[in-house]
Nucleic acid binder design. Structure first.
Lengths: 169, 169
DNA sequence: ACTTTTTAATAAGCTAGCTAATTAAATTTA
DNA sequence: TAAATTTAATTAGCTAGCTTATTAAAAAGT
């Protein structure tokens, strides 16, 4: 999980800007605000999921399985839907299986694959926690009006559109 | 690092909203937009820091040391400024020391403490990478006008203000 | 002056992410 | 039909975060 904060004060940014003309103060401040908010939100979410002895990764898999049909999902499908590698999914499923929240079943037509299903216990846990979960998610965003939520989504998509600039060689 | 994505489609959110009246669609969509943007930005930043054989945590420590005075920083001060535990700082300093970017020196007046300093090599690495780093940070935010950057900072601080709602028992 | 408590850094053990390699199974190629 | 290639899941090894415990050193209390 990410709890890293960065707290440079205004003076530190100004000092750096003197030495590095490439530093755009407004951009750096926006970036730092984003990273600091991320650290806080993730830390709070970790506490939240820990109440139910879950992590965000485990919870995400459970949610994907809740919405899957009777065939379940393969580990590869879980990896794709959750945006992590298959190796990571293996570890997460190990934990979920140990807690008896999911089962790994053979895939009928391909012995390389598995079919992952929610157990009754897993379904019950989600039923129990989702009201609380959605309440908290709603309250996380309660300080924003509906217009502000839309604005935030638009601005975040502009930030996201800038990520290739970091990846470029 | 966090690369977890969550990609529920519109229909999935609507289905859940039918079963869980606590689910506020606008809040969940805003939250998911935030988490997805976070995943992308962190993934891109990981690639960026990896070019210099660093991680965000290591880079943050180096930046704190760059701005420190001649006394350096203690590991405790690093932990506080970076927002992680002292145990985590120990591991990060191990890596930075192995790369000869920092040195651990005895603290003059208290043998429990250490004084951490940038090496010449560490300073040279920062001088070399910071122009590129600030260019990329500027480009990450280039799709936003200055007004939008200020708006984003304000909206993020409202999100951050909502984190106690997740922490509350 | 000695004992107790607190503090700093680290070690141990864990989770969750990654990459690369491995094994078994399916598909493709010749 | 057999060999070669590709795929799915896992394993191994790593990093970076955490908590808890440990050890050495300083501070506080008696």
């Amino acid at each position: 999980m990410v709890t890293l904060h960065s707290f440079p004060d205004q003076q530190a940014i100004l000092n750096l800007a003197k030495r590095y003309p490439q530093l755009d103060i407004a951009s750096v401040e926006t970036c730092l605000a984003f990273l600091n908010t991320t650290a806080d939100v993730y830390q709070a979410l970790d506490v939240h999921f820990a109440r139910y002895e879950l992590s965000m990764g485990k919870f995400t898999i459970l949610m994907q399985l809740l919405q899957a049909d009777e065939q379940g999902l393969t580990p590869s499908e879980c990896a794709e839907k959750c945006g992590v590698t298959r190796a990571t999914i293996t570890g997460l499923l190990d934990g979920l299986e140990r807690k008896e929240l999911v089962t790994r079943k053979p895939y009928p037509s391909d012995r390389r694959m598995l079919s992952i299903h929610l157990t009754d216990k897993g379904q019950q846990l989600l039923c129990q926690m989702l009201p609380d979960h959605f309440c908290r998610t709603t309250n996380l965003m309660a300080n924003l009006t509906d217009t502000e939520k839309k604005t935030l989504i638009e601005l975040l998509s502009k930030v996201k559109a800038g990520t290739p600039a970091i990846l470029k060689p």
